[in-house]
Design a protein around this nucleic acid. Structure first.
Lengths: 294, 294
DNA sequence: GTGCTTTTATCACTGGAAATGATTTTTTAA
DNA sequence: TTAAAAAATCATTTCCAGTGATAAAAGCAC
């Protein structure tokens, strides 16, 4: 059973004639006859009563229902991939918690308003998890922080320049505490795989002292809340801390420049693999061009 | 875009490998490769990232959705026509008002209980209308009264032997009134095309006197109600009148045998055109075999 | 890295079916 | 009855799905 045969069948019923159907589908009448006969042979039932106009038999009427639904899906599917049609379907995005909290609300609102027939799915996770999901085809694109490991099978485009800071619930006189102090302070961080967590580890690198306890949290709100409560300190993007400073008494210390600067990129599979929905997302004006977030 | 190609695509994603997909679909791996490449060429986008296991690209994920839906419809459609599968879909029945009122409630209840996945549609109309609808492919089968015009393109099977009677709201002394009286009495009947109406006309045939007024009603209830109210007389199947005799004061007169006997048949297109739903309806035990309804 | 295995891509070839155009048969309308 | 229109049939061409063999590429173990 070919889609083409079903198309022909639908056309014959709708035009009421084999010849008219042939013309509509830009083929010849004998070809239409052959396709219908093939369908009838395959299903072992007569589908059309050959009077004028041609009328579907009971079995034909039943097939017509399926033919129309399959035809509609087929047309929709093709339309989804044509460069001119309205992009539709779902766009599966991934993001780090911090980016989701700080940058995505505005960005996605704009996007969803511009393309109402695209359904955005957002999944948060650590950079490592997101990259894996991208590779496994579970995500279309993801916002993540990586050290410029460009050049492999993933396309990465910088979108935000962030500054990491040390956040504490208690006053930090003299800026960043020394390593001795830090190594005795509990850290609050996202679970293994988060890009920022590497910064924590680098901050403490080269020490013989035992690594400080690192509490793992899955949510930005939880981290900030517990830091404010004095549970420990955290390394977070400055922009992510800002919105909490009204609610909590937070103290911030700058990190050395080489550790502080992190780049958030939008990562996706190469251009030739994009769905139309992904293409308009990646190329739209809502996608900032390495905008520095001071 | 062939259904087969979409099937292969789905199989590749689900098995995670071209070779495994080929095996599942009983073909060779090179054939699968060719089909996928053809799809990719047609849609001008890469659909699968060739790692191990094979993963769909964003575009591939979008196509997968359509491929699965089209595949499911295709399987359903084929199942609908296989002689062993559960018949499904809609069964479009037609019936005269009287048959619908008297015989169908029990018959259709039994049928619907036996075949829960068949949706019955019932349309009432005159015998002439039903035959036309049958020929136009708008109905699968219809209960109607005709004078044995078998042998053409419609299959007819007698199912009920009815007795027509004259019904009046006033006492009918001496049975059937004479023609003189009848020609002065208003008749209530279904609109043109009803088989019973021919009986009325035959009853009055051969008269020079002007034909009596014939009021046309679309509903059995309306006819009986108005007859009881004394508006006129009607010719109806005895079985159809029975259920009203508790509610109304009705008087009945026998008609001459040649006029009284009518046969209700089930009509449909020939066997080779039946849907599975129609087949089980026509061949089931609920279909009475010319049962006489005294 | 080197070899070994698994998987995919490429290629030439074959069979069969889709498409075509001409013609016949059937149906419909005049 | 005839003329016109539509569907079926048929011979022919074209194209493509499917095959098997082989090459290339990707994993995987060591």
């Amino acid at each position: 059973m070919l889609i083409r045969s079903l198309e022909m069948f639908t056309a014959v019923v709708e035009t009421g004639s084999f010849s008219a159907a042939a013309e509509r589908l830009h083929t010849v009448q004998s070809n239409v006859t052959a396709h219908i006969k093939k369908l009838e042979a395959e299903l072992e039932v007569s589908l059309l009563s050959r009077r004028t106009p041609v009328a579907p038999t009971p079995a034909g009427h039943q097939l017509l229902d399926y033919a129309r639904r399959i035809g509609a899906l087929h047309a929709q599917a093709r339309a989804c991939f044509r460069a001119d049609g309205e992009p539709a379907g779902e766009l599966r995005l991934g993001s780090m918690e911090t980016t989701a909290a700080v940058h995505l609300p505005r960005l996605l609102t704009t996007f969803a308003r511009r393309w109402p027939s695209i359904a955005v799915h957002l999944r948060t996770g650590t950079s490592a998890e997101l990259i894996e999901a991208l590779r496994a085809g579970q995500l279309d694109a993801a916002f993540l922080a990586v050290e410029g490991e460009e050049g492999d099978d993933l396309l990465m485009k910088p979108v935000f320049e962030e500054r990491l800071v040390l956040v504490s619930g208690r006053p930090l006189q003299g800026g960043l505490p020394d390593r001795q102090t830090l190594s005795r302070t509990p850290f609050l961080a996202f679970r293994q795989g988060c890009g920022y967590r590497q910064t924590v580890e680098m901050l403490l690198a080269g020490q013989r002292a035992p690594a400080p306890r690192i509490h793992e949290f899955g949510s930005l709100d939880a981290i900030v809340g517990c830091v404010a409560a004095g549970m420990g300190v955290a390394v977070l993007p400055e922009s992510a801390v800002g919105q909490y400073r009204q609610r909590f008494q937070l103290h911030i210390a700058e990190l050395p420049d080489d550790l502080a600067r992190v780049t958030t990129v939008i990562a996706s599979t190469p251009k030739g693999t994009w769905s139309r929905a992904l293409a308009v997302f990646m190329e739209g004006e809502w996608m900032p061009e390495a905008r520095s977030v001071a």
